[in-house]
């Protein structure tokens, strides 16, 4: 049940996507998000989905994982879609009318577009964490943000916090599972009962979870100090990131794909 959450998990591999320079992956992912929201026509969205599918295929990540990571946020997607469905007003006659609820053609279009967008967004960002180990990813984040260090922003510390947070997601999920089992063994009603009963039933799970999270944080801080960790200043790296020809080539291909997707805007307007 809880094990289905795959956000932030890493699936090691040696595909092109896996070995691509993480900074480029990060950049491409961010651009992808921007492009997703700028491509406001079905053709552009379809193209961005195709691009995503191609990347997943190249990374050899089974598509089953996408459905699994989407499952927990499905309610959010459904909620957004339904809101859009009712709140977008169109120029033409409403398709459906019930008291004050009116659904226009534009509403349906926009709701579908939005749902697909959010799904693509999750799947796209998941690909980044699936193919990049948290350690490498933070390294990339740190490098990309390093200019901000001049403004006295603690870039290294922020990156380290992110790594630790990512690293502990699976651990805490496992811990939650264990605690839930222990409380279920004592007769706690975690999977049935009314809403208030269920919320109350969470207390015996959340308290031990918080305590254990604090304990882990404490132990981790101690372990880091024991290994003489003292922040990012003057820290050198074992593996220095380097962009090779292949990395630049991949970036070029992705940028070309983005340009293509964005060009559909003009195309769509001409057609319409």
């Amino acid at each position: 049940m809880l094990k289905d959450i795959t956000i932030g998990q890493h699936f090691p591999g040696d595909s092109v996507v896996h070995t691509l320079d993480p900074r480029i992956k990060l950049l491409v992912t961010m651009l992808y998000i921007v492009v997703l929201f700028m491509a406001s026509n079905p053709l552009g969205i379809a193209l961005s989905l195709a691009m995503l599918a191609a990347l997943y295929a190249a990374a050899k990540i089974p598509p089953r994982l996408i459905t699994r990571s989407l499952k927990p946020i499905l309610p959010v997607i459904a909620f957004t879609a339904v809101l859009n469905l009712f709140f977008i007003t169109g120029a033409g006659e409403p398709l459906f009318e019930l008291f004050f609820l009116k659904i226009y053609r534009e509403g349906v279009e926009y709701a579908a577009l939005m749902a697909v967008r959010v799904i693509a967004l999750i799947a796209g960002t998941s690909l980044l964490t699936y193919t990049t180990s948290p350690l490498v990813l933070t390294d990339a984040i740190e490098r990309v943000l390093s200019p901000l260090g001049r403004l006295h922003l603690p870039v290294h510390e922020l990156a380290m916090m992110m790594t630790i947070a990512l690293r502990f997601i699976p651990t805490l999920i496992e811990e939650t599972d264990k605690i839930m089992n222990a409380q279920k063994a004592r007769g706690a009603l975690l999977d049935s009962g009314t809403l208030t009963e269920r919320v109350q039933a969470l207390v015996p799970v959340l308290i031990p979870l918080f305590i254990s999270a604090f304990r882990r944080a404490d132990e981790l801080a101690m372990a880091m100090e024991c290994r003489c960790y003292r922040g990012g200043e003057g820290r050198t790296r074992l593996k220095v990131l380097k962009c090779g020809t292949r990395d630049w080539l991949c970036l070029a291909v992705c940028l070309a794909a983005f340009a293509l997707i964005l060009s559909t805007r003009a195309l769509w307007q001409v057609a319409a």
Binding site: E175, K178, I179, N181, A182, Q183, A185, R186, V203, P204, I207, P208, I211, S212
Partner: peptide
């Protein structure tokens, strides 16, 4: 009684 059951106290 699970392993390390003291972590279930709340």
């Amino acid at each position: 009684v699970m392993q390390y059951p003291e972590y279930q106290l709340f």
